[in-house]
């Protein structure tokens, strides 16, 4: 029987600083057959390890349409043991990955719909995965709106990509920073995500919204979406909990009776409402 705890060995193929404390790693599978065969779905997560330091969990931040490598974005602001170790990796280093785990964004339900993607801070990571997955099959979807927001200009992730998305004419991409977080050169919006969202006022008709970010932002974004007429089944988000196994065994992943690692991390707003206040 396969040892599910044995990670795939990965080579760090690229390291990109997103912000002063958020970094993106591009990881290539060292084993050729896994490189060819590995598949996941946007929204799923994995456990990333630095040998000798341990494992930690984040979503896969790259689209599921481009096999061969994965990307992850992580914050090392809090100085956790593993995230700090990850932040010390350089191109060519070996690290580990196991996954994918958990459920994924409802890509099939999204087909033919207008899509609203909303990412706050590092919450853009799962949004980027599903957003780029959709872009790679652009024709299958209706209007696409992406709102990438952060506390400040320096905290905005995926800056270069955001500029490229803004430049595209088949989608709408808006970047915003919280009031006070702008710089003199800032050419995006200034305003909290929920407020900017209400200004943009995407139609709820035949639409789905995918939201990810800090809990407080999610809370207000959900309220704004409700004002815009989005029903609870039209909104999806992802949750994050501390996990060790990735598969509902270690006892950490549950919020009440719900296991984030197995039932989630993707939840509809309707499902979210059913959870006890334990996250």
């Amino acid at each position: 029987m396969a040892n599910v705890y044995l990670p795939y060995l990965m080579t760090v193929a690229a390291v990109r600083d997103e912000t002063p404390d958020v970094r993106t790693l591009r990881l290539e599978f060292q084993d050729e057959s896994i490189r060819e065969g590995f598949r996941f779905r946007a929204g799923q997560f994995g456990l990333y390890s630095v040998f000798g330091q341990g494992e930690c969990v984040f979503c896969i931040a790259s689209p599921d349409t481009r096999p061969g490598a994965i990307e992850c974005s992580f914050s090392y602001r809090w100085g956790g043991k593993v995230t700090s170790a990850l932040s010390r990796l350089t191109v060519g280093d070996t690290m580990g990955f196991r996954g994918p785990y958990g459920n994924w964004f409802p890509l099939d339900a999204m087909r033919g719909k207008n899509l609203v993607f909303i990412g706050g801070g590092i919450g853009m990571a799962p949004i980027r995965s599903i957003f780029e997955t959709a872009l790679d099959q652009r024709a299958e979807f209706g209007d696409i709106l992406l709102l990438n927001g952060a506390r400040s200009v320096s905290d905005l992730v995926y800056k270069a990509e955001t500029e490229a998305w803004i430049a595209r004419d088949d989608i709408t991409c808006v970047k915003t920073v919280d009031p006070g977080g702008e710089t003199p050169e800032w050419d995006g919006k200034v305003g909290l995500i929920p407020k900017v969202l209400e200004e943009l006022a995407p139609s709820a008709t035949n639409a789905l919204a995918l939201v990810c970010g800090p809990p407080i932002m999610i809370k207000f974004a959900l309220e704004s979406l409700a004002k815009l007429g989005f029903g609870k089944e039209q909104i999806y988000t992802t949750l994050e909990n501390r996990m060790k196994c990735g598969s509902g065994q270690c006892g950490r992943g549950n919020i009440g009776g719900c296991y984030v690692c197995k039932d989630g991390p993707v939840f509809s707003a309707a499902e979210l409402e059913q959870l006890p206040p334990e996250f």
Binding site: Y5, S49, F51, G52, G54, Q249, C250
Partner: peptide, 24 residues
């Protein structure tokens, strides 16, 4: 009870990834 934790135990030359009992 079956909760557990996982850590790497070892030194600069190597070690083991260990799973061990934990408590809620």
């Amino acid at each position: 009870c079956h909760c557990f934790d996982i850590v790497d135990e070892g030194n600069a030359a190597g070690g083991s990834r260990c799973k061990f009992w934990d408590s809620c």
